[in-house]
């Protein structure tokens, strides 16, 4: 194991930390341009963060440490995921510490912290957002795990490094039927988990429709900053993971040198940027779903994932 591999997790964390607001910025900018607006620029989220961080810290009455810690936990879970998942190398020392199931679990921890933070305020909005957010997360869970199954079957492992390495070794496996189905399923749940359209509108403050915003309604100042940062990081890290799961070209392997690492870093940034562009572009054309149509969407993605697994395991058992 090289020193570079040891440093990779730290590099990934740093990259996600710094890049996440830009990803959010890219998506907003794309959207603004497509809607005919000038847009605030890609760096606007960074400026927002700076603004929030300078504001007074407010603790609403009646809240507990849960409220105060929730943003840190959301951000922390996203950072931990960033450290674990193979973004620049498949040979991270952390790879054996957590597999895809654990990553999904960490993601859920973030969702739970968000929901608890919303609930802790005791306001109607906080409760409402928590209830909706957590319900959607619960319904997305089966899809995610099934997609994991579909992806880990060909690789023979659920550890991300191995999966990505396997795909990198034989890139055409993702173009199979299971791969396609799993991709769509995973994309859908990423949209749901990160509160993007059509599941949730990140820019709405309409009482009856908001999910994510309702949970962080009482946050202000530095905590709000952390919250927004965290949600951008979640999005970023998930997009990066999606990119490497299905298109791991250029990721640094065991024998890669510093150049390889550098290339991998640039490539993953590029992939995430492309995905953000696409996602931002799509968001312009879709309307938000009514809350109770969301389960249908998730059920659809579940069926896709199930089909992915079944076909995958049929293929596997046929050849195997």
């Amino acid at each position: 194991m090289t020193v570079l591999a040891m440093v990779a997790p730290a590099a990934q964390v740093a990259g996600v930390l710094l890049g996440a607001p830009l990803v959010a910025g890219v998506m907003r900018q794309v959207r603004a341009r497509l809607e005919g607006r000038v847009g605030a620029g890609v760096a606007q989220p960074w400026r927002d963060l700076r603004k929030h961080l300078r504001k007074q810290a407010m603790t609403p009455s009646g809240t507990t440490v849960v409220f105060s810690l929730a943003p840190a936990v959301v951000a922390g879970s996203a950072l931990l995921i960033a450290a674990i998942v193979p973004l620049v190398t498949t040979f991270s020392p952390l790879d054996r510490m957590a597999d895809l199931f654990a990553v999904v679990g960490l993601l859920l921890i973030g969702t739970v912290a968000l929901a608890l933070g919303g609930l802790d305020t005791g306001t109607a909005f906080g409760g409402m957002g928590a209830s909706r957010g957590i319900t959607i997360a619960a319904l997305a869970e089966p899809t995610i795990l099934l997609s994991v199954f579909a992806l880990s079957l060909p690789a023979g492992s659920s550890n991300l490094g191995v999966i990505v390495a396997a795909t990198a070794h034989d890139p055409w496996t993702v173009l199979s039927v299971p791969g396609a189905l799993a991709f769509v399923a995973l994309l859908t749940v990423i949209v749901a988990e990160t509160g993007r359209l059509p599941v949730d509108n990140p820019s709405t403050h309409l009482e009856l429709t908001m999910i994510h915003e309702a949970m962080e309604l009482e946050y202000a100042g530095p905590r709000l900053a952390l919250m927004e940062w965290a949600s951008a990081m979640r999005l970023t890290v998930l997009l990066a993971l999606l990119a490497n799961l299905f298109a791991p070209w250029g990721i640094a392997g065991a024998g890669s040198g510093a150049g390889g690492f550098l290339l991998a870093t640039v490539l993953i940034a590029a992939k995430v940027a492309v995905l953000a562009l696409i996602l931002g572009g799509i968001e312009v054309f879709v309307a938000k779903l009514r809350l109770f149509r969301v389960p249908e969407l998730l059920a659809g993605s579940f069926v896709l994932a199930l089909l992915a697994v079944t076909t995958s395991s049929f293929f596997a058992s046929a050849v195997g």
């Binding site: 964390v13 810690l69 943003p71 840190a72 936990v73 959301v74 951000a75 922390g76 879970s77 950072l79 931990l80 450290a83 674990i84 952390l94 054996r96 510490m97 957590a98 597999d99 895809l100 199931f101 654990a102 960490l106 921890i109 880990s152 023979g156 492992s157 659920s158 550890n159 952390l226 965290a230």
Partner: peptide, 21 residues
Amino acid sequence: LGSIAPAVLAAGMASAVILAV
């Protein structure tokens, strides 16, 4: 098919939260 290290995850989680704070 895979492996995890719960104690490491817990430690990682704790340090990540501290970092976030």
